[in-house]
């Protein structure tokens, strides 16, 4: 078995009656970088929350054939503790997991180094820019070295330039750690750039409409973003999205 995670006819209806997800089946192999793409409200966040165990499925199941992996979660907002320094925020998952404070602090600083925030370990979130806060959030998710990293539109609130930079950094971190990445986005271009595979969800309640592999070399070569191959994949996806919306 090469896959890490299997979603088996996963469905979710919230207690208030909202049907968020109709039926989703997919297998995600270890070390893959997969995007969940779709318009807002089609249940993408719900899928991540189900995988993370933050919600229970109404039907179907989330299965971990090789045992439940350690998870990291990056939210759309940085979701930092306003009262704690960057290093303290990053150390949180470690400390909650029982790592001694001094040790956790050291590992947190190393994780901040990794995301380019070496000099900001003692800064409070409010002293950092939006992009830097997101980097802290990434460092926190990676500090505990998760096997699976769940990301819920983490860069949606950032400006285009910062977003492009963080996309590249994320690929760099993946190259180094080879975690399984599940990345939710509603940006076609971000999905194409980041992922080896793109699951397109649509409708309310959401369901899978396409499972597209991106054959371009991974991690990305320089200039991929403006290459014909990039455009071709983006065009395929856009046409799928147009088909379902008409």
């Amino acid at each position: 078995m090469t896959h890490d995670l299997r979603l088996d006819r996963l469905a979710k209806t919230y207690p208030n009656g909202t049907a968020a997800l109709q039926e989703l089946s997919a297998e995600i192999e270890a070390g893959a970088f997969v995007s969940l793409l779709g318009p807002s409200g089609c249940g993408k966040s719900t899928v991540l929350r189900l995988i993370a165990g933050l919600e229970l499925p109404s039907r179907g199941s989330v299965e971990w054939p090789r045992g439940r992996a350690a998870l990291g979660f990056i939210f759309q907002e940085p979701t930092l503790m306003a009262w704690a320094s960057a290093a303290k925020n990053v150390a949180l998952p470690l400390e909650l997991g029982g790592v001694a404070e001094a040790d956790a602090g050291q590992r947190a600083r190393a994780a901040l180094d990794k995301v380019g925030l070496a000099g900001f370990a003692d800064a409070l979130p409010r002293e950092l820019s939006g992009g830097m806060r997101m980097r802290v959030s990434i460092a926190r998710a990676l500090a505990a070295e998760p096997a699976v990293l769940l990301m819920d539109e983490p860069f949606a609130a950032l400006d285009e330039l910062t977003r492009g930079k963080l996309n590249d950094d994320l690929l760099g971190l993946w190259t180094e750690r080879r975690f399984t990445g599940i990345f939710v986005t509603h940006s076609v271009f971000e999905a194409v750039y980041l992922s080896q595979r793109i699951l397109i969800l649509s409708g309310r309640p959401g369901h899978l409409v396409a499972d597209i592999r991106n054959p371009a070399p991974y991690p990305r070569e320089a200039g991929y973003r403006t290459s014909p191959a990039f455009n071709a994949t983006a065009r395929d996806i856009l046409s799928v999205l147009e088909d379902v919306s008409t």
Binding site: A52, F73, T79, M81, L96, G97, A144
Partner: peptide, 25 residues
């Protein structure tokens, strides 16, 4: 609520959540 979820994700105990999240916020 996202921070609350984060604490749940890392299996924080009630007291960890209370001391590190509820009281400060």
């Amino acid at each position: 609520p996202n921070l609350r979820d984060l604490f749940r994700l890392y299996h924080a105990s009630f007291w960890q959540t209370f001391r590190r999240l509820m009281i400060p916020s």
